[in-house]
Design a protein around this nucleic acid. Structure first.
Length: 579
RNA sequence: GUUCCAGUAGCUCAGCAGGUAGAGCAUCGCCCUUUUAAGGCGGGGGUCCCGGGUUCAAAUCCCGGCUGGAACACCA
């Protein structure tokens, strides 16, 4: 009847809603409560089918219909579960043993759509064309799909009409996972990587802990934070940019080794290497130093790569990367000298700036010697390290939480591991001298005064903890997202985060029909006005009157409504009636 | 934040020397008992991202905006 009311949804959606009603009339509940006990997966059948022994003569399996091929009284469909697809064979007289052929002729052929979730019972056989197939004896609708899926077809490994629009894929990740099942593999591998690291650390006896995400003082990294507010405490809180200072407090407290997979938040730009929330694994081990930590990292990452790929060699794009231990170690200043020709060790901030300018390194908005050195390193050195490489012994200005080098003035005991030109992890011999730590924070405060928005804050409680005494400690942070990108051959961070950050979709509020009628719009015209894009009274109020009038008349003609053309005066009257 | 690119049917895309909006898949109707990117015949489906301008006439040209992507900038 009022099909016009459905103008805001597509023809295909209307048809599916009608199918839902039809099914109800037949007495089928499209959203049943009872469990559907499955006894096999598509993968198990495909992998274990045997043409001689003919196993799987009594299977129960559930999944989503991904295609239908109807050929009169026999039909084929593809069923997709988590692990893959299998073909289903439906035969009218098998499905409907008696006279009543409704379950085949009506329900299966007409009312079941691509995207519906069904459960089937039957036995497995191989068709003439050689495809392993389930001969369906019974089926049951488990959930009706009201929206048409993007249809992706495949032949001989070639994909047709792939669903590729990144915006839709990220916004509606569920659709991406349904329609591009290969993308599930990336996320399974991500979990495998995390599990492999966790297993490694647990085996060493380190304790997995959880520390606050809401922090009154953000610390442990140089970055701008997200700010929020706690009502009951009347307190500004920050989402953590790192968990370093809390994990070190736990080392003070007497744990020997602690680690955390930590969702961190940084209020900075979004690009293919940065998402505002991302995952790091941080590890702190007492009585160790950065030299020890380098060996642990080599051992751990090599194991992770082997767990995932059964070899230490991987391909990233066209680049082969080999994670075989040991990895080369290059001192920070030596790397700069190698790639720029300048030895910057012992140079003052002014001298470093002068050289940066000679090297065409952008020094604008960069406060302090640390940032300039970092910029030179980023521009000239980083990209050269393809196989995993340790850069060691960083300038003290770049590392306010790292311990001074045991023998070299102006350096700290720190390393980063760089792979394919990108930093993967960062580690120090941790600074445990409370007096030195206080001075370093004070230097940060000076940088903040000079305009460095990322300078660290003074954390008095952290200093107090150090004053009680923290054992010498080695600490490590690994970027899990970037490691996953590398090991799964993905070139955008959004491909390894299930729900990457996007601007929210605009939601238009649609006013009820009665509101339109109340300002004098004839009931018949309401759907037309909504069709024209005026979903609420606010939109009518701010509309161009002549335009609205023209559009409504256009649709009156187009949809052959038995209604006279409206006049500008009528439109003006409606607008006046809006309070 | 800057530059470049894109936005047309449910999906993938064509149309852009301005002149009635197209294809394939999907969908609807009919035929078909081992098909497989099933096939055959017929039909329906569009705020051409939004707003403004130029014009007799704009999906197409111009300006502004929105959303996304890429690169830079920023950033471990």
């Amino acid at each position: 009847m009022e099909s016009f009311l459905s103008f805001d949804i597509s023809e295909q959606e209307i048809i599916r809603r009608q199918a839902l009603e039809e099914l109800k009339k037949i007495g089928i509940d499209c959203y049943p409560n009872e469990e559907f006990p499955v006894n096999v997966t598509t993968k198990e059948i495909i992998e274990n089918w045997d043409d001689e022994k003919k196993p799987f003569q009594d299977v129960k399996i559930a999944g989503r219909i991904m295609s239908k091929r109807i050929m009169g009284s026999a039909s084929f469909a593809d069923l997709q579960d988590e692990h893959g697809r299998i073909q289903l064979y439906f035969n009218r007289d098998e499905i409907c043993k008696g006279e009543d052929k409704t379950m085949y002729n009506v329900v299966f052929k007409k009312l079941i759509d691509i995207g519906d979730i069904i459960g089937v019972e039957g036995y497995v056989f191989r068709t003439k064309m050689g495809e392993i197939t389930i001969h369906v004896k019974n089926y049951k609708i488990l959930s009706k799909s009201l929206r048409p899926l993007p249809i992706v077809k495949e032949k001989d490994g070639k994909i047709f009409d792939a669903f590729t629009d990144p915006e839709q894929r990220y916004r509606q990740r569920y659709l991406d996972l349904i329609v591009n099942p290969k993308n599930k593999e990336v996320f399974k591998k991500r979990t495998k990587i995390v599990n492999s690291i966790r297993e490694f650390l647990n085996q060493k006896g380190y304790l997995e802990v959880e520390t606050p995400i809401l922090q009154p003082i953000y610390g442990g990294a140089s970055a701008r934070p997200f700010k929020t507010y706690h009502n009951a405490l009347d307190l500004t809180l920050y989402l953590r940019i790192a968990n370093e200072l809390y994990l070190k407090r736990l080392i003070v407290g007497g744990f020997t080794g602690v680690y955390e997979f930590s969702k961190d938040f940084r209020n900075e730009g979004i690009d293919r290497f940065h998402n505002p929330e991302f995952t790091q694994m941080e590890l702190y081990v007492a009585y160790k130093d950065y030299l020890w930590m380098m060996e642990l990292v080599e051992e751990m990452i090599e194991k992770v790569v082997i767990d995932l790929h059964n070899t230490t060699k991987i391909m990233y794009g066209n680049t082969e990367i080999d994670f075989k231990r040991p990895w080369p170690r290059i001192k920070f200043y030596e790397a700069i000298e190698k790639y720029t020709g300048f030895n910057l060790y012992g140079k003052t901030e002014e001298e470093v700036i002068a050289i940066a300018k000679k090297l065409n390194v952008d020094t604008e908005n960069k406060v302090g010697k640390g940032k300039i050195l970092d910029a030179i390193f980023s521009d000239y050195c980083e990209k050269n390290f393809i196989n995993p490489t340790f850069i060691i012994d960083y300038p003290i200005e770049m590392s306010p939480l790292a311990k001074k080098h045991r023998s070299k003035e102006g350096l700290v005991e720190r390393f980063e591991m760089i792979c394919n030109g990108k930093e993967i992890c960062n580690a120090y011999t941790e600074l445990n001298d409370p007096i030195d730590q206080r001075e370093r924070f004070e230097e940060q405060l000076l940088l903040a005064k000079r305009g460095d928005e990322e300078a660290m804050q003074m954390d008095e409680d952290f200093i107090r903890a150090l004053e009680y005494g923290m054992p010498p400690t080695a600490g490590l942070g690994i970027g899990i997202d970037r490691l996953t990108m590398l090991l799964t051959n993905q070139h955008s961070i959004q491909e390894v985060i299930l729900f990457p950050q996007l601007r929210p979709e605009k939601r238009i509020t649609i006013d009820e029909q009665i509101k339109f009628i109340n300002i004098g719009i004839p009931e018949k015209l309401v759907p037309i006005i909504q069709k024209a894009g005026y979903y609420n009274l606010e939109m009518i109020k701010s509309a161009n009157k002549e335009r609205l009038c023209n559009e409504v008349n256009y649709y009156i003609t187009k949809y052959k409504l038995h209604h006279s053309q409206i006049t500008l005066e009528e439109v003006e009257k409606w607008i006046r009636n809006i309070t």
